[in-house]
Design a protein around this nucleic acid. Structure first.
Lengths: 345, 345
DNA sequence: CGCAGAATTTAAAACGTTGCAACAAAATTC
DNA sequence: GAATTTTGTTGCAACGTTTTAAATTCTGCG
């Protein structure tokens, strides 16, 4: 039949749209749109019919069109930082986040958390150009200007780490003060008298928390302490190791070491090994662990676990809820270090 | 120029659009669009005028609208794999990629490289829903079905790692065969007679390359060899360490070890340490290094460097060129291990 | 002066979606 | 049986851009 071929000819392999489904079912485009959105105003029977037809022709809504029409991007952006105290941070966190977004239709976008030296430009750009519906970032500072800006503009976001702003905002964090305290106490219980810990750059909130937990525990137990002041957690492994070697060469040298992250741990162990100090004898080391690799460090050290994948997952979940309009109150998660220190592996 | 009509209109704080610039300059929207695109048909003077006005009102093109109209998404997607032989892989690779895309208007999207067990569904979904203009993925297999699919559909992509397909496609890769050969030769030069290397899962192309380079060098030098067959590079640190301990317990035990990645290196070192084998005495270890952390491994080992950030950068660059229609020929980058082995740090 | 042919500019039509206002048909009320 | 509400459904108008086809102005030249 020629007419048959005629009508099927122009029907090229083009992407099915609402119109396709509309023609298929005989309903109007509007109705189809509503039906697929599960609108109560559309009859139950119609909804079923439309759903069936949509599935049959393989209809999938066009993101660009939805975005243009609604202004919602269905994108959330993670601000990527190059440095982290754990090598596997990005992979773990990101895996958790994408997992939380699975099936929601949201996509994860990555953008460096800084252009040149400017952290604000990144977030301003996202707001101004409506590049995302929400933002997640790490390495939060006590009075992080990004937080202030986002709060002022009422834009959904979740921070990894807290701030000192009085206005509450969603966050996921690990209780680093409790960790530091536990770590000091653990070393004290082993008879250590002089504790050393490498801190993150002081502008990060978690540096303050670590310091606070550390100091209060050290004071309580009446211990000596040292913070290496030439390096921080973002320094290169070599710099950290050199700083540790330096400290080990001093007359009043520490006998207890707390490590936040792989780099600090390995550099500390290397410095101790190079100085001929034996773990369990001349010194003890405890660390926070985010990857199973810690079990292979020699000498072995005791660790507690921080689950970064879970953290990323929660960051994703919280942000979705926030975008959906949830109140900030319920959107704050603080992980306590539950179990005590144990030998890794 | 048309008469200056009511400028007192409710000029709300709405995002400036082409229309805004059009009204501002007195030109038609079409002209403005063309002028901003640098279209030759628009008079030089007009282009300048429009550019100035656009900058003044802070015009930025709307991504959603462009995408809807042109079908181009200005997005490229990186397929994220949870496991990698280097902990820092994701961060490094991603940092490189975003760097390559800076200023191009392209955004990076992250999606897990597998849903359930299905690697194909991910890439099919991207094509079908036009979620991106191009794709990058890692952990390429010899006859990777994703590559076949993308080639068949003429969709731009870059793989990290090669395939054995006859049809060429863009890739970035490291010459792992050369690395393995170098490593064997290095160990041989130290008088080692029995070489051991943990391979990646054999379905990955780079596993074949490593094996090939290894085998040909081992045969040439007339050495013994062992591939631990209960683990691969993606096994857990504990499993790898256990397998190595096992091998060290055998009568004919290897005296040279090649490690691809941190996990293998640390697990091997731990097993050697635990077995009381001294590096330089009872055994030697060489490794490929992607992060500066290797300098802190004790005992120290010799390494060669693979630059994953650069790799990510190139992947981004190649994909952009490919999207722009460049021929596949020039879009294949193979990194040779240039310098020889040296003590890390 | 008239006119072909460049050189510029423009109006209008998409792209696929959703929100608004309206409408027909059925159900309810008085 | 008319008036009113309820229940489903629909057409039209955006959202901001690019593209097609057409209109306008500007040249130079006979």
């Amino acid at each position: 039949m020629p007419s048959e071929t005629d009508t099927s000819a122009p029907r090229a392999r083009s992407k099915p749209t609402l119109r396709t489904v509309a023609e298929e079912t005989g309903f109007a485009v509007t109705t189809v749109s509503r039906a697929l959105a599960g609108d109560e105003r559309i009859a139950e029977a119609t909804r079923a019919l439309v759903a069936e037809a949509a599935a049959r022709v393989g209809y999938v809504p066009d993101r660009a069109a939805q975005r243009l029409r609604t202004g919602r991007t269905k994108v959330i952006t993670l601000l990527l930082n190059t440095a982290h105290e754990y090598l596997g941070f990005t992979n773990e966190f990101l895996s958790g986040m994408t997992e939380a977004l699975r099936g929601t239709g949201y996509a994860v976008n990555i953008t460096p958390d800084t252009v040149g030296d400017d952290r604000m430009a990144v977030v301003r750009n996202i707001l101004q150009n409506r590049l995302a519906d929400g933002v997640v970032f790490t390495r939060t500072e006590c009075f992080d200007p990004r937080v202030r800006f986002l709060l002022e503009n009422d834009f959904p976001f979740v921070t990894h780490g807290r701030t000192d702003f009085t206005t509450p905002h969603p966050f996921v964090d690990y209780d680093n003060a409790a960790f530091a305290r536990m770590a000091v106490e653990r070393l004290a219980s082993k008879g250590r008298k002089h504790i050393c810990m490498i801190l993150p750059d002081e502008r990060f909130t978690f540096a303050q928390h670590l310091r606070y937990g550390f100091m209060s525990a050290v004071r309580e137990a009446g211990l000596d302490y040292t913070f290496p002041d030439t390096v921080d957690l973002d320094s290169s492994p070599d710099e950290i190791a050199a700083a540790m070697a330096d400290i080990l060469g001093q007359s009043a040298r520490p006998d207890g070491f707390i490590c936040v992250g792989e780099v600090a741990a390995l550099a500390t162990l290397a410095a101790l090994t190079d100085a001929g100090v034996e773990i369990g004898e001349g010194a003890d080391v405890v660390a926070k662990r985010a990857s199973p690799i810690f079990s292979q460090f020699r000498p072995r050290i005791e660790t507690v676990f921080e689950d970064l994948r879970e953290t990323g997952f929660e960051a994703g979940e919280l942000l979705l809820k926030r975008i959906d309009g949830a109140e900030v109150q319920g959107l704050q998660v603080l992980h306590k270090p539950t179990k005590g220190f144990a030998l890794s592996g």
